[in-house]
Each structure stands twice: as structure tokens, then as C-alpha cells.
Design a binder for these strands. Structure first.
Lengths: 183, 183
DNA sequence: TATTGTTATACTCTATAACTATA
DNA sequence: TATAGTTATAGAGTATAACAATA
């Protein structure tokens, strides 16, 4: 069958009014279902659930959702936490080294550090020996915040370990350690 | 130390010319380093490498990079592959069921299905019994493409298994299976 | 009134590319 | 010529919010 055949691609504009957007504040949405969601017949996941990529994505969704929720109490994202941790472990690093270590684009990392600097968590100063570099340090505020973030991360892991069992948790940690080497 | 003190936040506009953007086509960039990248001293990852979230992200980077590269040969993303797989395993599903099963927003899924429909891989037709529904089926082209995608995924997993060892691979699969249950 | 799907908006990530300043 | 960093841009993904059609 060729692409674009047999009724495929019809979809007559079902609601083509636009540009209304009056921002009516009342009638606050609740478009996520309360119940009647459990009453739906579950989908077969087919081969998908056997694929490693799918499983890793499920794991990431689970773990990141919980970690993000806990870090959000400090207005910090997982990526920001990683950067703070790396700066603390390597005082005076430059931005490119962090970007490469975390597999983040240097442009994106620059914006991220901008934000941390504006919040007074990171000090960015020009290197004396090579003026192309910015060297990064945690401020006292950054060090203090990081000390409060770590227990939040630990709480998250403890919760997961309790949910899946400490044995399964440590096996998971061990199995994932193969990815810590170079990419 | 308060935020915004002691030289923090200075950053004197180091290159404030903008709006040049002439799109000179020659001199094609090569801004990623050829060598001299191995010569850099490696960063200490500090506590970060012990955190589960960090390990899962490393794993995801590794696996998705390889899978994406292989699927890109068919101009398909991992998310599109998942949707095609789910439609094949559940002919006649509606969009919301897929979105919930994959933890994708329904708005984003709509755009994704739009794309697959335009390529003639998915047929989207109105349900006869409930006219709010679109029911989704793979076209013959979609079925045929999926049959060619699966070996690409299998190749990727085989490559990883060879790299880390079949024992480590199956332990990884088993350890990750705890996330297949409900979130 | 609740549900399915679409559209719009915004914000983040990612990936490129071009540019400045420096080496 | 190569490197560190910034800026701009475009594409995805995510998260809301509003809306139409339908139940």
C-alpha cells in the first residue's frame, strides 16, 4: 500500500476555530481523569516490554519523577544538582570539562551555569593562567544547598529500595555500573 | 555568603556584537575536537556516580544513542517505534490509551501520530461506535517497516550484550524489569 | 458533566552554527 | 589554526490550558 491512500490523511478540520484565547480564569481545568481510568482495559505492550531501551525509559521515568519532585522543593533540577556536585568535587573546573563529563552541550551548560551564578550558588571567574577559561567554584551558599540536596536524593533511593526490596536495588545498581565507563 | 557578592555575576560582556548572522556557507565548522581530548585530565565524578539517577541516565544515553542511530536509517525515532509497536500489538486502539501506556502527553502523541499518518504508516479513522475516538491501525507499509525496524533494535541489543557480556546483559534486563509494573 | 482529541503557548533540551576572545 | 565560551536558531519533548465534538 502506498503512503497517503485509502482515507489516510483525511481528518477534516475538527474544530478549526483558533486565536480565541481569552484566558478566562474561572472554570479551572480538571482535564485529567479522577477515576474511571482503572476501568480501562490494559494495553498489551507486545514486544516492547522486552526491549532494553523501553525498560530503561520506564526506569528513568520512575526515578527522575521522584528525584525531580524532591529537588523541586529547593527549586533545583536534576541537571543542576549534577553540575553542583561536579563543581564541588572538582573546584576550579572549566565549563567544557563539566559539559563533556555530563554529556551536555556546552551551550546548554552555559545557560545552566548562568542560572546557578545568578542564584549565587556558583562563582564564575576568569582564569589567571588562561584567559579563555572560566573557572567555577561553589559559593558558601552553593555548598550549603548541596548539603541539603544530598539527603533528598538519598531519601528517594531509600524509598525505591523499600519498594522493590534492598536486594533488587543493589542488583540494579550493580547492573547499571557497566555504563559508568567511557561511552 | 549572600548571593551576588564578591565578583559573582560580573561577567563583562565578552563578545557583545550580535545580529550579524550572514549565513556564510563556506568554512564549514568542525568545532568538535579531533584529538587532544584524550589528553585532558579526567574529572572526578564525586558522589554522582553512586547515585541511581546518574547511572540510569548514563545507561539511557548509551542505549538511546545507539538505537537512535540505527532507527535514523529508517527516519524513525525511538518514540515513533514504540507507537508503531503498540498499534501493531493493539489494532484499533485510540490515542489516549497509547499516550497513557507510554507516559506521553496526548498533545504530543497527536503530533507524533500526525506524522506517522502523513507518511502512510498509520491509518487513523473515526470509530463507528464512539465518534469521539480515532481508532488506529498500521497500514501495510507500517507493518512492513516495523518488520524491518525490529532487527535493527535486536542488533543494537546484541552489540551491547557483546560489549558487556551476555551475563551482565541478562542481569541488567532482569534488574530493570521491576519498573514494568504500574508507575 | 466527563471524555477524546486538537490547538496554542511556553519552557526546557538537544543539536548546529556562527561569532569573540584567546591561545 | 585550535580552543573556551557565548549567542542564535530550529527541532523535539513536556506541561498547561482552552476548545469542539461527543457521550
Amino acid at each position: 500500500m502506498e503512503p497517503g491512500k485509502a482515507g489516510v490523511g483525511k481528518r477534516i478540520a475538527k474544530g478549526s476555530r483558533r486565536a480565541a484565547r481569552v484566558a478566562k480564569p474561572s472554570r479551572s481545568a480538571k482535564r485529567t481523569t479522577p477515576a474511571a481510568k482503572a476501568a480501562r482495559p490494559k494495553l498489551s505492550s507486545g514486544d516492547l516490554s522486552h526491549s532494553l531501551g523501553y525498560r530503561i525509559r520506564r526506569a528513568q521515568l520512575w526515578v527522575f519523577k521522584d528525584v525531580s519532585r524532591r529537588l523541586a522543593a529547593f527549586d533545583i533540577s536534576p541537571a543542576q544538582f549534577s553540575v553542583l556536585s561536579l563543581i564541588e568535587a572538582n573546584p576550579g573546573v572549566n565549563q567544557l570539562a563539566i559539559a563533556q563529563s555530563l554529556s551536555i552541550e556546552r551551550a546548554g551548560l552555559g545557560r545552566l551555569v548562568d542560572h546557578l551564578e545568578r542564584r549565587g550558588l556558583v562563582q564564575r571567574s576568569a582564569s589567571a593562567i588562561n584567559r579563555r577559561y572560566y573557572v567555577l567554584y561553589l559559593t558558601e551558599a552553593g555548598t550549603a544547598l548541596l548539603a541539603r540536596l544530598r539527603p533528598a536524593i538519598a531519601e528517594s533511593e531509600k524509598t525505591l529500595a523499600a519498594k522493590i526490596g534492598p536486594r533488587a536495588f543493589s542488583e540494579l545498581q550493580r547492573a547499571l555500573s557497566v555504563f559508568l565507563q567511557d561511552p
